[in-house]
């Protein structure tokens, strides 16, 4: 155990910087490639103009080059990274909370609640949903949070929440909410497209408004995950052992559920439902640096950001001038790598 831990620590010291470097590299690529052909010099110039505008307040030129670099590529790069961080951390917390490798950010109904919220938003606002609309993400967040809260309240028995009850209640309520969403979708048939594309997940058409929406979730969530490292490590030993080691298990579970939902709802609100990242990135991180959350949390966050940045580049470039839904790419990129790690390491730490 101790030698494993020491080895994991050494690996962590190598792996994290490597992933961060790769993330920065991927970020640069994402700024320089896209459907529009801009020379690297033009991109650098636009970035410098943007930086100058930020520092001096002197506005940058309003043209397509600056629009594309500063108001499309840059916010999308940040969004991809932040969504990746949120999903990967949310999945890590859910897996610790449920002590179940199948747990993902959507396991207690965040996704179905957010889906309902999005559909309701699309029914309420003008059918001609303009770009940069915030009603959908706002109601998606509200829906996701409301379903998690409902599931939690329904799972309580004499002030205690059993993990299995939470899981099953989540599935039951999630199905009901999904049924309501399906019904609304059929009733409002004519205006489906926006909802459907939103549900499929992706970052197309998102901008700075959405960065501002998710940034607090990612920052607060990341810090809270670092604070919650000890309870998550204790829960790995089983609830009874954790309690005997002095952990208030009930309270820890409550906080972890809230934390994970905050992260998941933030990601769902701006990116729709993106498959795979929240489920598999924590496992990839665990296979790389072991189960200790002190290492797992930063590595999962960095890997999630890296995977999402790469996936978004692929989504934008592969079928340009069209775009692919990003969920297709996250699965296609993440799955082979995950299977490789799984086979090589024999499933250690699952």
């Amino acid at each position: 155990m101790t030698t494993t831990a020491r080895r994991d620590g050494r690996v962590f010291g190598v792996v994290l910087p490597l992933i961060l470097i790769a993330g920065v590299g991927a970020g640069l690529i994402s700024l320089f490639v896209g459907a529009a052909e801009q020379s690297p010099a033009q991109v650098v110039g636009a970035l410098l103009d943007g930086g100058r505008a930020l520092v001096t307040g002197h506005p940058y030129p309003v043209d397509t080059l600056h629009s594309i670099v500063l108001n499309l590529r840059l916010p999308r790069l940040l969004l991809a990274a932040l969504v990746g961080v949120c999903l990967a951390l949310s999945g890590s917390v859910m897996q610790a909370l449920f002590q179940n490798p199948m747990a993902d950010p959507y396991i207690v109904g965040v996704s179905s609640g957010a889906g309902l919220g999005a559909v309701v938003a699309m029914m309420l606002v003008a059918p001609l949903a303009p770009l940069g609309l915030v009603t959908v993400p706002a109601l998606a967040f509200a829906g996701g949070a409301a379903v998690v809260l409902l599931v939690y309240i329904l799972s309580q028995r004499a002030g205690r929440v059993h993990t299995a009850t939470l899981l099953l209640t989540g599935i039951a309520v999630g199905s009901l909410v999904a049924a309501a969403t399906s019904f609304l979708l059929l009733v409002m048939e004519q205006d489906l497209r926006g909802v459907l594309f939103w549900l499929l997940g992706g970052l197309s058409g998102r901008g700075w408004t959405h960065v501002a929406m998710i940034a607090p979730h990612a920052v607060v969530g990341f810090v809270a995950c670092l604070v919650a490292v000890r309870p998550m490590n204790l829960l790995l030993l089983g609830e009874d052992t954790a309690a005997s080691l002095g952990l208030d298990v009930g309270q820890a579970k409550r906080w972890l559920l809230a934390l994970s939902s905050l992260l998941a709802a933030g990601a769902v609100a701006v990116g729709g439902i993106i498959a795979f990242v929240g489920l598999v990135v924590p496992h990839i991180a665990r296979l790389l640096v072991g189960p200790d959350h002190r290492h797992l949390v930063p590595v999962a966050a960095a890997s999630g950001a890296l995977l999402m940045i790469l996936a978004d580049v692929a989504a934008r470039v592969l079928v340009a001038p069209s775009e692919l839904p990003i969920g297709i790419i996250t699965s296609a990129l993440g799955c082979p790598f995950f299977l490789y790690l799984l086979r090589r390491q024999g499933g250690r730490g699952l």
Partner: peptide
């Protein structure tokens, strides 16, 4: 009929942008 990325649309720099009203 094709999905078009915002980037491609903006880079094409249309001088006239026509929107179908759908139901508005």
């Amino acid at each position: 009929y094709s999905n078009l990325s915002a980037e491609a649309a903006i880079a094409a720099d249309p001088q006239v942008l026509l929107l179908s009203s759908q139901h508005a």
